[in-house]
Write a protein that binds this DNA or RNA. Structure first.
Lengths: 215, 215
DNA sequence: ACCTGAACACCGTTCAAGT
DNA sequence: ACCTGAACACCGTTCAAGT
């Protein structure tokens, strides 16, 4: 439990890193400016000399993890479809890696530098595909919405430790209700959202192709 | 500022209603068990005799607002495409009506009775369209993810009072960066997400049609 | 320049007590 | 049965003081 005192003096980057570690280990609920200071081996208020508020700290953390998205070793593929899939998969991997933080990131309304960079890459990819400017923005929003929605869904299940749309939840309901949900869910077992994610991406890609043919 | 004392004694339903009113007026940040009690004209701890914890209170509120989804006067249309669009539009309207609450609702991992009911209706609609069971679940997840992601995006913008993906945000960045985002966003002005939402839904509907033709 | 420590105005929740 | 009020163990943040 004892933490080594930091040889290096405090810096925003170090603080973001330590905060991230703590959230990954103990969860968001246990995370506070005070508990972070304890982990840093420092007075509760020392952090305020580097970061003005808890809100600013959170935004810094969000931007830090978004930095992982485009800083990966693998190069981006050439074709727009592959590029789109690659971006989506990286986003999903990022979200699952930081699943304790992600819901609050999504709920936050601040868009950081690195998130903007990722969005720009997405828009560029759709332009390459041949969409006109208006369509690019609208499809870009759709892709972003789909991917964001999926990771939220998936993380929500992850925390529940119940498979898919709440099978346990379902059992507490009247046996004759939710007939569709019941009959459809039972045959399926694992990797449900992974498969749905791929299906959803393909759905949008097919939709884009329909859109491209119309022009 | 003075609140009338409740003639009716406390009940979970009354508490949910008052909590919802307070959140709509003052926002989630100002909302607390203590401020709620003040509004109810009651001791801070009185609420605990009806609802065991703040977490349970929030879940109750979430379920209350989901109840609005299927309790509307208009009947559901017949054709699966119209039904899907109707459900999506109702969900969006619900989310915007309760935009101060919705991000935390999305982040919450509990699925309530009324939310499950809405999901069941969605799955039934896709079955009617002619999808097989596996496809129904996967497409259902996709629709849910898309719609959820969109309202999150839209609410996030709403709170920013900056149009779309952060135009103000963009101005604080280096002028030569984010070239795609810059050139695409400038010609567009209002109702951006509304249009993107319709485009996204059409994208998925077209994708579903492609899927149906494959069988 | 950087960190400390007391203090302020809050939280959610427990528990014994009142009616 | 239903509500109260003091108390506990926390929060984020301000500010004057230390080195």
């Amino acid at each position: 439990m004892a933490k080594a005192k930091p040889r290096i003096p405090l810096s925003p980057e170090l603080i973001y890193q330590m905060a991230l570690e703590q959230i990954n280990q103990a969860g968001l609920e246990k995370f506070s400016m005070r508990s972070l200071a304890t982990r840093l081996g420092v007075d509760p208020m020392a952090v305020y000399h580097h970061i003005p508020s808890k809100a600013a700290l959170m935004e810094g953390i969000y931007d830090t993890i978004f930095g992982e998205l485009l800083a990966e070793d693998q190069p981006m593929p050439d074709h727009w479809q592959d590029k789109l899939l690659e971006l989506a998969h990286r986003f999903r991997a990022l979200a699952l890696r930081h699943h304790k933080l992600f819901p609050s990131l999504i709920a936050s309304n601040h868009i950081g530098h690195n998130e903007l960079k990722a969005l720009d890459t997405l828009l560029g990819t759709l332009l390459e595909a041949g969409l006109d400017p208006t369509a690019t923005v609208q499809v870009g929003d759709s892709v972003f919405a789909l991917v964001t929605g999926f990771v939220i869904l998936e993380i929500s299940e992850l925390q529940n430790t119940t498979p898919h749309t709440g099978t346990e939840r379902l059992e507490s309901e009247n046996q004759t209700d939710f007939i569709n949900t019941r009959t459809l869910l039972e045959p399926l077992t694992d990797n449900l959202f992974r498969n749905s994610f791929e299906t959803g991406l393909q759905l949008i890609i097919d939709g884009i192709k329909v859109k491209l043919q119309k022009n």
